[in-house]
Simulated assay, not measured.
Amino acid sequence: MKLSICFMLISIASYGLSYWLPSLVKEFGVGYTANGFLNAIPYLLATFALIFLVPAVRKGDRPLYAMLAASVIGMVCFLSSVFLHNNVYRFALLSLGGPCIYVLLPCLWVLPSRFLKDAKAAVGIATITSVGGFGAFLGQNLVAWVRHLSGSADLPMLIPAGACFLLFFMIFNMIYSEKITRIFMFDEKSKESI
C-alpha cells in the first residue's frame, strides 16, 4: 500500500507540473513559441537525469535514498518557485524540480519486485498503477482548483511541492521501518545461534 501511495503522490506532482507549467511560463510574458521551447527544458534535463543518474541508483537501498533526495530537492525547488519574484530564478527552480519527479518513477518501479513475488507481484503492480491513476486525476484538478481559489498563477506549484513533501515522509518511513526490521531479524538470528 505504501508504494501505491508513493506512486499516487508522484502522479500528483507530475501531472500538476505538466499541466500547469505552460500556463506559469506564459505569465512570464513570453510568446507561444518561446513558451514551447522553455517548457521543453525540464523534460530535456529529466532525460539526462534518467540516462545518467538512474542506472547508478538501482541496487540495494539506493532507490529509496535517491527517492528521498529527489523528493526533498523537488519540494524545495517548487516551494521556492512560489515565493521568488524573479522569473529567471523561478524558471530555473522549476527546471530543476521537474526532473526530480521523473527520477522518482524508475526508482519506484524497482521496488515492487523486491517485496512481491509471483501472483502477488501482478496484483501489487495493478494496485500501484490503479492508485497512481487516481493521483493523475487529482494532480491536474488540484492545480486548477488552487488557481481558481487563489487567483494566483504561482500558488498552484504548492501542489507538486506538497506531494514531494508527503512523499519524503513516506520514503523516510519505508527506510526507517526496513532498518528496524533488519535489526530485529539480526537479533532473532543471534538469539538462535546462542
Rank of each mutant, 00 (worst) to 15 (best):
V76N: 06
L68V: 04
Y89Q: 14
G60L: 13
M75T: 00
F83C: 11
Y89M: 15
F78V: 11
P55Q: 03
M67S: 05
A69L: 07
F52Q: 02
Y89A: 14
F91L: 15
K59Q: 03
R90A: 10
L64F: 06
F52L: 11
D61W: 03
M75E: 05
I73N: 01
L79P: 07
K59Y: 08
A69C: 04
V82C: 12
V54F: 00
D61N: 09
A69W: 00
V72R: 12
H85L: 14
R62N: 08
A66N: 00
Y89C: 14
A70Q: 02
L68G: 03
Y89E: 14
G60T: 10
L84P: 04
A92P: 06
V72I: 15
P55V: 01
F91S: 05
I51E: 07
A70G: 01
S80D: 07
L68C: 10
N87T: 15
R62A: 12
V82W: 08
I73S: 03
S81F: 09
N87S: 14
A49G: 08
M75H: 02
A70M: 05
Y65W: 13
V76F: 11
L68S: 07
I73Q: 00
C77V: 13
G74L: 03
S80W: 08
N87H: 12
P63S: 10
R90L: 06
Y89S: 14
P63V: 04
L84K: 04
L79H: 11
L64Q: 08
D61F: 06
R90M: 15
L68E: 01
L84V: 12
S81E: 09
Y89W: 15
F91G: 13
R90Q: 14
V76R: 12
K59S: 03
A66H: 00
A92I: 14
I73F: 02
F83M: 05
D61I: 11
I73A: 09
V88F: 15
A56P: 06
